[in-house]
């Protein structure tokens, strides 16, 4: 009995498919989900989402959001979800530097820059961890 995983963002449905298990960055630490999980709703933090599909592991960088687990269907609701293969490290690093500079220059909290910074850091973390 597989687990149906769906990852949706306001912009698109990023992932939809059967998986064996998934590890989520929960608000209170990472937790794994296997088929037969109880009906659960909880928040997730920006971090790394690990999917095991056909014995293969893959990773995504996700933003903050929610997850509803019900009847072997894991629905992840987040504002960002990017596959680790799709993360362009140089571009993200560049974005991070620009955001940091914008924050330093502005002297006041620049929301847009802060959001960019957060996103870039989450992506970089996942990318770097998974390269080795």
């Amino acid at each position: 009995m597989p687990l149906l995983l769906e990852i949706v963002t306001p912009e698109a449905k990023t992932f939809s498919g059967d998986v064996e298990s998934v590890v989520l960055p929960g608000a209170q630490g990472e937790f794994g989900v296997l088929p037969g999980h109880e009906h659960l709703i909880t928040g997730i933090e920006p971090g790394e989402l690990e999917i095991t599909q056909n014995g293969q592991k893959s990773w995504l960088a996700v933003g903050s959001g929610f997850v509803e687990i019900r009847n072997d269907r894991v629905a992840v609701l987040t504002d960002m979800a990017i596959r680790v293969e799709d993360i362009d490290e140089n571009a993200v690093e560049e974005a991070r530097r620009r955001a940091e500079k914008a924050i330093a220059d502005a002297g006041h909290p620049d929301e847009a820059a802060r959001a960019t910074l957060q996103r870039s850091l989450a992506q970089l973390n996942v990318k770097r961890r998974r390269r080795h």
């Binding site: 009906h39 709703i41 909880t42 929610f66 509803e68």
Partner: peptide, 17 residues
Amino acid sequence: PTFEPSAAEVLNALLPH
């Protein structure tokens, strides 16, 4: 459903979204 940590806290985090 079970809420973790609690329904109120999930709602707290949910409303901004």
